[in-house]
């Protein structure tokens, strides 16, 4: 009974978090759309389409949290009550992170579509691509909660709780980095409309790297899940995923900064787009490697602990 109470409280909190994040992002998007509409009334139709598409993504984030609450509610037992509570809150946090980044991206896209109304189609495509990546981050948390919910029992509850928390943390970090880079890409699209395609490719590549950081946490959770049945396994697993998450957040934030700078460089010097992209990729690989060092250590140590 107490587990159910705990879970319900957490679920309410998670829904509130997700709703807050989605609402804030939608507010930002809506405001940007209004702003764009009075500045360029003649393209208000295009602006509205862009806005609606962005709002749908943010709305869906809250729906994912709703779905996971629904899924877990049927499985809550005293044994895994803590896990279920942490899981829904993690989902809420991840959704908030994704939503905030999406809001930043959509606002920048809407600014771009009134500043360069002719290329609002290009802007919309780039925006959608960016939002898809940020949406996927929450989906990864969703997936990990779902998978762990299927295998969790009293012997793994510490690890499983830490794992979903770590995933949420990593997703927030990745989303923050992606939001920064994508917003810069939207700006580059109106500053240099001719290079919109180049900017989009570079943006996409940068977002893939930040996405991968969350996926490394995802992967390590899977690696550790089979071994986290003892107390030692639980403690080690919890520490390991926490370490991975912290590393991922650091890497993601710096990648976001590097990515945004690359976007700016691309519009300032469109002829050098290829060189800038190659340099950006090499820089991102190095920042990614930092998280991978943690991954390698955890991987090696997990064999010894078990």
């Amino acid at each position: 009974m107490s587990a159910m109470v705990l879970f319900s409280g957490a679920a309410v909190l998670a829904m509130a978090l997700a709703a807050f994040g989605s609402a804030y992002a939608q507010g930002r998007t809506g405001a940007a759309a209004m702003d764009a509409t009075w500045k360029k009334p003649e393209v208000s139709g295009k602006i509205r389409t862009t806005m609606m598409l962005a709002l749908v993504f943010m709305e869906a984030l809250t729906l994912f949290v709703f779905a996971i609450v629904f899924v877990l509610a049927g499985r809550v037992t005293n044994e895994i009550g803590v896990f279920a509570a942490v899981a829904v809150v993690s989902m809420g946090l991840a959704a908030t992170g994704s939503a905030l980044a999406q809001g930043r991206t959509a606002a920048a896209a809407l600014e771009s579509s009134w500043r360069e109304p002719e290329d609002s189609g290009d802007t919309r495509t780039s925006m959608m691509l960016g939002l898809v990546f940020m949406e996927a981050l929450t989906l990864f948390v969703f997936a990990i909660v779902f998978v762990l919910a299927g295998s969790v029992d009293g012997s793994r509850v510490v690890f499983a709780s830490a794992a979903v928390g770590a995933m949420a943390l990593a997703a927030i970090g990745s989303a923050a980095g992606q939001g920064r880079t994508a917003a810069a890409a939207m700006q580059a699209t109106w500053k240099q409309p001719a290079g919109a395609g180049n900017t989009r490719t570079s943006m996409m590549l940068a977002l893939v790297f930040m996405e991968a950081l969350t996926l490394f946490v995802f992967a390590i959770v899977f690696v550790l899940n089979g071994r986290a049945t003892t107390l030692a396994g639980n403690l080690f697993g919890a520490a390991a995923v926490a370490a991975m998450a912290m590393a991922a957040v650091g890497s993601a934030l710096s990648q976001g900064k590097a990515g945004a700078a690359a976007m700016e460089a691309t519009w300032r010097q469109p002829e050098a787009a290829g060189d800038i992209r190659t340099s950006m990729m090499l820089a991102l690989v190095f920042m990614e490697a930092l998280t991978l060092f943690v991954f390698a250590i955890v991987f090696v140590l997990s064999g010894m602990v078990a």
Binding site: V208, A212, L215, F216, F218, A219, F222
Partner: peptide, 9 residues
């Protein structure tokens, strides 16, 4: 790892 994490994830 990047490839497998993405596809597997």
């Amino acid at each position: 790892l990047r490839l497998v994490a993405n596809i597997f994830g």
